[in-house]
Amino acid sequence: MRHDDCCPGLPMHEGFDGAGRHGRRVRESAAMGRENTMSVRTKLDSWRNVGSFAVRRLADYAELLTIEMAETRSRLLREFIALVALTVCALFTVSFFCIAVIASALNKPYFLYVVWGVAIAWLLLSLIALLACRALRPIHSFDVLKDELQADLQSLREALK
């Protein structure tokens, strides 16, 4: 048996006795060399696959980002217009109500109490509104894009293991 028959592509090494028998150390080192080459090749292939996946998904992310930005912009505009209309209507309503309460107590002995009562009621309503605004949960924009990115990153992590 020739050395090339048992170990094609490997240089002649110690422990080959011509009869096809190798020393244990020689067999282990040859196997480790092949494993290291295969693991490097496998890692390079996985990195190449990850890179091509990321490039393909980049266009999807850009499209998703533009869609989410348009949706967020229209939602914010709608909410802003509704909030302004509600605020204007509420202010006019409450203003006329307060004027009516004060005018009805105009020549009465408790006139100052009514005026201060209206002012304190407005102060309390303002504090309640402030606390309500702080308690609101913020609207999370771009949730779909964030979820897609997290799912793809998880896929990439698993592919690189």
Rank of each mutant, 00 (worst) to 15 (best):
residue 1 M to K: 13
residue 4 D to H: 12
residue 11 P to L: 12
residue 12 M to H: 13
residue 18 G to P: 05
residue 24 R to P: 13
residue 25 R to N: 08
residue 25 R to D: 14
residue 29 S to Y: 00
residue 34 R to H: 09
residue 37 T to G: 10
residue 41 R to M: 05
residue 43 K to L: 14
residue 43 K to E: 06
residue 51 G to N: 08
residue 52 S to L: 10
residue 54 A to L: 13
residue 58 L to N: 10
residue 58 L to A: 14
residue 60 D to I: 04
residue 61 Y to F: 13
residue 62 A to I: 10
residue 63 E to C: 13
residue 65 L to I: 04
residue 67 I to P: 01
residue 67 I to Y: 03
residue 71 E to D: 13
residue 73 R to I: 08
residue 76 L to T: 02
residue 76 L to H: 00
residue 77 L to H: 10
residue 77 L to F: 06
residue 77 L to G: 02
residue 78 R to S: 08
residue 78 R to T: 12
residue 88 V to G: 02
residue 96 F to K: 01
residue 96 F to H: 08
residue 96 F to T: 04
residue 100 A to Q: 01
residue 102 I to A: 13
residue 102 I to V: 15
residue 103 A to D: 10
residue 104 S to R: 13
residue 106 L to F: 08
residue 107 N to I: 03
residue 107 N to K: 09
residue 108 K to N: 11
residue 110 Y to G: 11
residue 110 Y to F: 14
residue 111 F to K: 12
residue 113 Y to H: 10
residue 116 W to G: 11
residue 116 W to P: 00
residue 117 G to R: 00
residue 122 W to F: 15
residue 124 L to N: 04
residue 125 L to C: 14
residue 132 A to N: 03
residue 132 A to F: 02
residue 133 C to D: 04
residue 135 A to I: 00
residue 139 I to T: 13
residue 145 L to M: 09
residue 146 K to I: 05
residue 147 D to H: 07
residue 154 Q to R: 13
residue 154 Q to Y: 09
residue 155 S to Q: 11
residue 156 L to W: 01
residue 157 R to M: 09
residue 158 E to N: 14
residue 158 E to L: 15
residue 159 A to L: 06
